[in-house]
């Protein structure tokens, strides 16, 4: 496998958008995510339970699976040297089989902290149709030059 390129801080500008990512969701999407996150609760694999007990129209994507999608969305953009420092999200609505979810993002700011670590602060959001189902902010560390690697930062040099 060829080494993947990584985004460096000097190539990022405040206000720039991240490329959108669209995912068609089906039953397998939801169930795979539930199993991968070891979430055995029936509302993520049993439609009858979800409809009758939760009052939803179908099974739905669980929170850690949602987080994994946001992580993928961020590191698709940064490449492997992008190191996630902090993520905050608020799920406002559920995502169901049959939905097409679209991830969006924009760079809120670019900064270097007092340890010399470069950061991109991001606003991210997930939509289904014209509805925003999750709002998210994240800070991802990026190399400040070709020879920098945020993953090599140890405890005292890592302040997410």
């Amino acid at each position: 496998m060829a080494a993947a390129a990584s985004l460096t801080l000097d190539r990022v500008e405040s206000g720039e958008p991240l490329p959108e990512l669209a995912i068609d969701v089906d039953v397998s999407t939801v169930v795979l995510g539930a199993l991968a996150t070891r979430d055995w609760r029936p509302m993520h694999h049993d439609k009858d339970f979800a409809v009758e007990r939760n009052g939803t129209r179908h099974i739905f994507i669980n929170t850690p699976h949602n987080a994994a999608y946001f992580e993928r969305y961020i590191t698709d953009w940064t490449g492997p040297k992008g190191r996630l420092g902090r993520i905050k999200f608020r799920m406002k609505d559920s995502v169901f089989p049959g939905d097409t979810m679209v991830f969006h993002g924009t760079v809120d700011g670019v900064r270097t902290d007092d340890t010399g670590c470069g950061w991109a602060d991001l606003s991210l959001w997930l939509t289904v149709g014209d509805k925003t189902t999750t709002e998210c902010t994240a800070s991802v560390a990026l190399p400040v030059g070709e020879n920098d690697n945020p993953w090599k930062r140890t405890r005292e040099n890592w302040k997410p």
Binding site: A3, A36, H65
Partner: peptide, 11 residues
């Protein structure tokens, strides 16, 4: 399993 579930190709 996690990477597969979200098609995360991060090497």
């Amino acid at each position: 399993s996690s990477c597969s579930s979200v098609e995360n190709a991060n090497p």
